[in-house]
Simulated assay, not measured.
Amino acid sequence: MMPEDLPQDRPLDEEWLSRVVATALDEDLGGWPGRDVTTQATISPDATVTGDIVVREDGVVAGLGVIAETLTQVADRFGLVAPTVKAMVADGDRVAAGTVVVGIEGVGHVVLIAERTILNLVSRASGVATHTRRWVEALEGTPARVLDTRKTTPGLRELDKYAVRCGGGTNKRFGLYDCAMVKDNHIVAAGSVTGAIAAIRVAFPGVPIQVEVESRDQAIEALDAGVRFLMLDNMTPAAMATLISELRNRDPEYGSVRFEATGGLTLETAGAVAASGVDFLSVGGLTHSSPILDIALDLH
Rank of each mutant, 00 (worst) to 15 (best):
residue 230 L to F: 13
residue 117 T to C: 14
residue 263 G to Y: 02
residue 270 A to Y: 00
residue 232 L to D: 03
residue 293 L to P: 02
residue 83 P to R: 06
residue 141 G to K: 01
residue 108 G to W: 07
residue 278 V to D: 02
residue 290 S to Q: 04
residue 297 L to S: 00
residue 235 M to V: 06
residue 249 N to C: 11
residue 245 S to R: 14
residue 21 V to T: 00
residue 147 L to W: 10
residue 255 G to T: 12
residue 85 V to E: 00
residue 67 I to A: 08
residue 137 E to N: 15
residue 270 A to V: 02
residue 106 G to P: 02
residue 8 Q to A: 09
residue 291 P to T: 05
residue 98 G to I: 12
residue 159 L to I: 02
residue 217 D to Q: 14
residue 25 L to V: 11
residue 42 T to V: 14
residue 296 A to M: 07
residue 36 D to P: 05
residue 126 S to N: 07
residue 260 E to R: 09
residue 34 G to D: 02
residue 167 G to C: 06
residue 106 G to C: 10
residue 204 F to L: 14
residue 117 T to I: 14
residue 209 I to D: 00
residue 294 D to N: 08
residue 21 V to M: 01
residue 181 M to T: 10
residue 135 W to I: 07
residue 33 P to M: 07
residue 39 T to G: 05
residue 179 C to L: 15
residue 251 D to R: 15
residue 208 P to Y: 13
residue 256 S to Q: 15
residue 273 V to S: 04
residue 229 F to V: 15
residue 12 L to Q: 00
residue 229 F to A: 14
residue 92 G to P: 04
residue 260 E to V: 12
residue 294 D to C: 02
residue 145 R to D: 00
residue 257 V to W: 11
residue 57 E to K: 14
residue 55 V to Y: 01
residue 173 R to Q: 03
residue 203 A to M: 12
residue 36 D to A: 14
residue 197 I to V: 15
residue 141 G to P: 02
residue 110 V to I: 10
residue 1 M to R: 12
residue 295 I to E: 01
residue 117 T to N: 12
residue 173 R to A: 04
residue 69 E to I: 01
residue 294 D to Q: 03
residue 6 L to P: 02
residue 186 H to P: 11
residue 158 E to M: 13
residue 99 T to I: 12
residue 268 E to Q: 11
residue 177 Y to T: 13
residue 47 A to Q: 15
residue 56 R to C: 12
residue 289 S to F: 08
residue 9 D to Y: 04
residue 249 N to I: 04
residue 129 A to T: 02
residue 36 D to H: 10
residue 97 A to F: 11
residue 107 V to G: 13
residue 242 T to M: 07
residue 142 T to M: 02
residue 206 G to P: 04
residue 40 Q to R: 12
residue 95 V to C: 04
residue 23 T to A: 13
residue 86 K to M: 09
residue 177 Y to D: 13
residue 296 A to P: 05
residue 159 L to Q: 01
residue 65 G to Q: 05
residue 115 E to T: 04
residue 97 A to Y: 06
residue 183 K to G: 02
residue 279 D to N: 14
residue 202 V to R: 13
residue 249 N to D: 15
residue 68 A to H: 14
residue 262 T to L: 08
residue 114 A to Q: 07
residue 115 E to V: 02
residue 20 V to R: 03
